[in-house]
Design a protein around this nucleic acid. Sequence first.
DNA 1: CTCGGTCCCGTACGCGGTACGGCAGGGAAG
DNA 2: CTTCCCTGCCGTACCGCGTACGGGACCGAG
Lengths: 255, 255
Amino acid sequence: MSNARKGRVDPARSLAILWRTREPASRSAGPGLSVDRIVRAAIEIADAEGIDALTMRRVGEALGAGTMSVYTYVPGKTELLDVMVDTLYGEMSRPVDVPGGWRARLESIARENLRLYRAHPWLLRAETSRPVLGPHLLAKYDYELGAVAGIGLDDVEMDAVLTLVLGHVRSAARAELDVVNLERETGMTDGQWWQSHAPWLEHFMKSGSYPTAARVGTAAGQAHGAAYGPEHAFEWGLQRVLDGISVVIAERRGA
Amino acid sequence: MSNARKGRVDPARSLAILWRTREPASRSAGPGLSVDRIVRAAIEIADAEGIDALTMRRVGEALGAGTMSVYTYVPGKTELLDVMVDTLYGEMSRPVDVPGGWRARLESIARENLRLYRAHPWLLRAETSRPVLGPHLLAKYDYELGAVAGIGLDDVEMDAVLTLVLGHVRSAARAELDVVNLERETGMTDGQWWQSHAPWLEHFMKSGSYPTAARVGTAAGQAHGAAYGPEHAFEWGLQRVLDGISVVIAERRGA
DNA sequence: CTCGGTCCCGTACGCGGTACGGCAGGGAAG
DNA sequence: CTTCCCTGCCGTACCGCGTACGGGACCGAG
């Protein structure tokens, strides 16, 4: 349990790894490790078995190397996670030909970010803490800013728009992943879980308290098993957020 | 590193603890533990020293008891966290006399949730995973639904509105806390950190790539040290979100 | 006084990150 | 070719975590 950024953090060291300021140093003996190979292996492990299965021992093992060999290239697990995250940012799609103005572009960005979270759910846990200024994060930021450039917003507003939209994507992704994790961890489906909790809930709800919660919760639960769900929450919320942004843009245009 | 819900989870057991379905069982000898005392102590530790300092050994110690004594009342750390979270929900302010309609009430709710995150930053890490249906979560949900009841939205929409608003609060709180954590963990202030990274950034940005990111990032950074910041991101985003919601409500009213 | 249940906790296990120090092998210097 | 050192590699060990297990202490009931 944690995810904290432990110990002293040396920015220079971290950034050096992020930006790969280093000679290849090709030696033939041994497993022939490298930051790239380590990061690749780590991402594969996290994708396949979840971030809890990502241990330094496991990474070394996956590369046919000893545990401590990993530390030759990466100062610690924290920095490894940093590089993993930045690497994923680098693999995102960044189409330049999105038609439809700022709204369509923001939608496209939101969807691509959601796709990333779905493909690498552990990102939601790894991203915690401060942003790590890796090269791909910068590229991502630059690209995404392009969606809201030149439509009358000032710099701080552009940044705020992005923060808002990406924050929404994160929230939605988290909700969606929670459902999936729930099933995998407890071994029961969402429906089964609902079933097992239902008696208790009914008991306490029909005791008179929480009338609204009982009704709406049931309605949401019902719909949950049917058509509604995190997917719809993402779409619905995204449209609300974009509507809200459009108000500001309209104001700026009017002024 | 984790926060996962480990092992088999017995809903009945968890719920029993959440709802305190248990006799007081007052014994005079020993430290005289109880779920409440344990939870109280755990919350104090997490508040004062962060969630990483919250270990079962530490909890026992704080109560003048042995580590394993804690397990007499709580099945494991997971459940302890569950109860801690639900306990906090129970301590939230829920004014009934908020004037100004749904918008003012949602604003009030958002602010109260932000206050909670600020008072107990570890909540952001503990809340992960599925919602635990404790009594206070239900009360909270019921109360918050009241803000958007009777204004033309259907049940699923009411739930969606809440999800959206609370998700925004979470995002904003996370951003805000990241800044604070950054300072505590690295021992340097936001400004110092910016300073130490600046050379690198300038170097790579002035190399021609990422022109927009460079400009906006700098602008945001400047403002960051000055007036702008997470606080403003929260307020600005909240108004956007509420604007977006008002569009839907207006539609429903018109129809 | 005995007995059974409840509370308490000492010990120990497995597993995580990682400090430390040694080893080996290849290139550079002689 | 030999020597030396630098660098990649990693075995061992330490500390701290969550928690299973089994035993001891205390209680009220019979």
